[in-house]
């Protein structure tokens, strides 16, 4: 565990807490993509089946359980508890356009052709694009609540920090995983446009809105 990875995980936890708090405090999931959250639930479920097969540390196992639990709790809030506020009309990104290519790619490009490994690989590919329905929703409505933009900033920071973690691990531990790195870089790139608008608008106290 190095500082970049710790901060990355912390940022990831923060993102999830911000998301749940936003829904709970405003009693609304308006502006949130249920489809991105479905994708994240699939990501965590397929990646963390290794909870049953390999033990890394108490921290690692607890984090996995929290991520799985919170992703389903979020789905419950969006699709059941606050369903009336869900912006389904704008949340129209077709998830199969992400699921199918990621599944095929996992079957072709993987470290080992073995069930748990393939699920891990699939989850890595899917995570890299899971935020697309959320970004698509924002591009359709042209705006995001400030708290939603904080959520996205935290989530993007998590991936950015993981890249620093991989650079560190490459030099210090001679460890690298090309599948995780390439997917992680793609994922971070998807946030760049958002980061730019976040820094130029939200940090200066303005609402997050796409340029006209």
């Amino acid at each position: 565990m190095n500082i970049f990875r710790f901060l990355g995980d912390a940022s990831h936890f923060a993102a999830i807490i911000i998301l749940v708090l936003k829904i709970w405090k405003t009693r609304s999931c308006a502006g949130l993509s249920g489809r991105s959250q479905i994708a994240f639930a699939i990501v965590f479920t397929t990646r963390y089946v290794d909870l049953l097969t390999s033990y890394v540390s108490l921290y690692n196992s607890l984090a996995k359980i929290i991520f799985i639990f919170s992703s389903y709790a979020t789905l419950y809030l969006i699709y059941f508890r606050f369903k009336a506020t869900y912006d389904g009309n704008h949340d129209t990104f077709r998830l199969e356009f992400l699921l199918v290519p990621c599944a095929l790619l996992a079957l072709i490009v993987n470290h080992r052709f073995q069930v748990v490994e393939l699920l891990w690989t699939f989850s890595i590919y899917l995570e890299s694009v899971a935020i697309l329905p959320q970004l698509f929703l924002i591009s359709k409505t042209g705006e995001a609540e400030t708290i939603t933009s904080h959520y996205l900033f935290s989530l993007g920071s998590y991936r950015g920090l993981y890249i620093l973690n991989w650079i560190y691990r490459y030099y210090v531990q001679n460890y690298y995983d090309l599948i995780a790195i390439s997917a992680g870089v793609l994922q971070t790139l998807l946030y760049c446009d958002f980061f730019y608008l976040y820094i130029t608008r939200v940090i200066k106290g303005k609402a997050f809105a796409l340029p006209a």
């Binding site: 990875r5 995980d9 990831h12 290794d50 390999s54 890394v56 690692n60 984090a63 996995k64 991520f67 470290h111 080992r112 891990w120 993981y162 973690n165 001679n174 460890y175 690298y176 995983d177 090309l178 599948i179 995780a180």
Partner: peptide
């Protein structure tokens, strides 16, 4: 080496 045997990250 591409150490992919154990996935110790989240």
């Amino acid at each position: 080496s591409d150490s992919s045997k154990e996935h110790d990250e989240l």
